[in-house]
């Protein structure tokens, strides 16, 4: 079953960037409502991380929603007084909207980091420049190598009795020694890596960059749908506006804005649509076999 996240990294990255951008550049309560709802559902279906991240988001949401009316006293509709300061309905609604926007954007970014693993990011950078892609790939390899090496050296020093954990100064001296050995080792062995690169023709001319991911028709199709939905949302939401203070006045439900909501709605549940379609197809396939 080819789920949404198995599409080409360009498609996946473009999708999340669009969804995040539309969410972040608007204060439209309807859009933020849709965005928050869809991003939470997407996250639950994809990440399966348990309850913890949601608790964190909830706390964040409550705090942010509460802070605005406490420090912002604009607005005509006074709900009650706190320490002789008015708490207004306008400021409260604004706070809830802003908090919803932040939390929704957070969910979209979480989904992005979850979906874009290191090899997918490398692929994206590789499309930009084969050199950057190689450097990143080597950097990832070297950090891992140095980590393992650090461990080996400090164990070796310890077992030779050269690494004294007795007090802070000695422990720091021990660390410095391990670091110094590690650097010598890295420089010495870097020569071997450099020779290995030379021997295999590095620097003999223009490089190409081999990719495991292919950009297929359907990747193009989904990217196009994603772009179209974003365009409709942006155009449609252009006219939809909210004046918050002194009292809330909206132009949220013009026909053109409703078109914008539909566009954004399609965008935000696109992964769910694709996954459901695939699940149904899979079911029919397994019935047929």
């Amino acid at each position: 079953m080819r789920e949404f996240h198995e599409y080409n990294p360009i498609t996946v990255a473009a999708y999340y960037l669009c969804a995040t951008a539309v969410t972040m550049f608007t204060m439209n309560p309807v859009v933020i409502g849709i965005s928050l709802f869809a991003s939470v559902i997407n996250y639950i279906l994809y990440a399966k991380n348990g309850i913890k991240p949601h608790l964190f988001s909830l706390v964040l949401f409550v705090i942010m929603a509460a802070v605005n009316p406490l420090i912002n006293h604009n607005g005509m509709t006074v709900l009650f007084y706190l320490n002789d300061r008015p708490i207004t309905a306008e400021a409260a609604i604004y706070g809830v909207t802003a908090a919803g926007m932040t939390v929704a954007a957070l969910y979209w970014l979480r989904l992005f980091t979850k979906a874009m693993t290191s090899d997918k990011l490398l692929y994206l950078f590789g499309r930009l420049s084969p050199k950057i892609s190689l450097i990143l790939s080597m950097a990832i390899r070297y950090t891992e190598l140095l980590r393992i090496r650090w461990r080996k050296i400090s164990d070796a020093q310890k077992a030779l009795g050269l690494y004294d954990d007795g007090n802070l100064i000695d422990a720091l001296k021990g660390r410095a020694r391990v670091l110094s050995i590690l650097i010598t080792w890295a420089l010495e062995n870097g020569i071997i890596t450099a020779e290995s690169m030379d021997a295999r023709g590095y620097g003999t001319g223009r490089r190409t960059s081999f990719r495991l991911f292919r950009f297929r028709m359907r990747d193009g199709l989904i990217t196009a749908i994603c772009a179209a939905a974003t365009a409709i949302a942006v155009i449609g939401l252009n006219g939809a506006d909210v004046v918050w203070y002194p009292s809330i006045k909206t132009t949220l439900f013009e026909p053109v804005s409703i078109m914008g909501y539909v566009g954004f709605g399609v965008l935000s549940i696109l992964p769910i649509i694709i996954n459901t379609k695939e699940a149904i197809r899979w079911r029919y396939l397994s019935c047929a076999n």
Binding site: D119, L134, S137, M138, I140, T193, R200, T204, S209, L212
Partner: peptide, 16 residues
């Protein structure tokens, strides 16, 4: 070994 992934290492010479 120069790169972080097996497939990339295999492709390295030909990329160069």
């Amino acid at each position: 070994i120069v790169t972080d992934k097996v497939w990339h290492e295999l492709a390295f010479t030909l990329e160069n």
